[in-house]
């Protein structure tokens, strides 16, 4: 087996598309505790650095006529603010910093993850499940705090015929609890799949004849991934806004 592995590494095709997702401690030691600084931690810290660089240092001049960085920061601000206002309603503006945090973290994790040799925190279910559960809990708690038991009206479709309502209620409840699952798997799945596919194409590059095709395919996939990185951040954010609207205005 050892020789086999050796042979494979020297000549033939080696596919380890999932190895890039392995979380490992960065500073020595095999043991990984809760507070160990891992590659996942590193790239999350880099996301923080990027967010601060854009949103704080980029806007430090407070120019009336914005420079490049400030324009991008203002664009991001306007983009998310308008989304919150349009989708979730004017009274959801209080949640804007929270939603902005989610958006900025996801978008920067995704884009930093596109750098070669990098690690993408948002490709892990551990991360996206926490994000989705945060949204789910926020929406549920806000729903009950703002509307009391009326929030349950979300599941009781009053516009439907009375006989259908219990059936619809069951469907609505199931769909409500499936939300965090789809919300988290959509993001991690998209990011992970794209990275894995790029890795598989890269594996094919070991064959000289195929390598030009492989390089082209990687380039195309990379372009698609750039798109997906932004779109998935957008989708996650807008779904958060949609759920928040349900919490603030539960009537159908």
């Amino acid at each position: 087996m050892a020789t086999e592995a050796h042979g494979a590494e020297e000549g033939g095709l080696v596919f380890h598309p999932m190895d890039q997702f392995i979380v490992k401690p960065l500073f020595g030691g095999e043991h990984m505790g809760m507070f160990t600084f891992t590659n996942a931690s590193l790239w999350m810290m880099l996301a923080i650095v990027a967010v601060i660089a854009l949103m704080v240092f980029g806007t430090s001049r407070r120019a009336r006529i914005p420079g490049r960085a400030q324009s991008v920061a203002e664009l991001a601000y306007g983009f998310v603010y308008k989304m919150v206002e349009d989708v979730a309603g004017k009274d959801a503006v209080g949640f804007f910093p929270y939603i902005m945090t989610l958006f900025m973290f996801i978008v920067f994790s995704n884009f930093l993850g596109l750098l070669p040799m990098s690690f993408t925190p948002t490709s892990h279910f551990a991360v996206t499940v926490v994000l989705a559960m945060l949204v789910f809990l926020t929406v549920t708690i806000v729903g009950f705090v703002k509307n009391g038991t009326k929030f349950l009206g979300l599941f009781w479709v009053s516009s439907a015929p009375l006989a259908l309502r219990p059936v619809l209620a069951i469907i609505e409840i199931i769909s409500y609890f499936v939300r965090p699952v789809s919300h988290s798997i959509r993001l991690a799945g998209n990011v992970m799949a794209g990275h894995a596919v790029i890795k598989v194409f890269a594996g094919f590059a070991a064959i000289a004849v195929i390598s030009p095709v492989s390089v082209l395919a990687i380039t195309a996939m990379y372009g698609l991934e750039v798109l997906v990185s932004f779109i998935q951040a957008y989708v996650f954010t807008i779904l958060t806004c949609v759920y928040l609207k349900d919490a603030l205005h539960p009537s159908h």
Binding site: T38, T59, M100
Partner: peptide, 22 residues
């Protein structure tokens, strides 16, 4: 491990955004 660092990250980004940037 990931969840711990994620929470740290989110709290830092939230504080930076809500206190300074936004």
């Amino acid at each position: 491990n990931q969840i711990f660092w994620l929470v740290v990250t989110l709290v830092v980004i939230y504080l930076v955004l809500s206190r300074v940037a936004l």
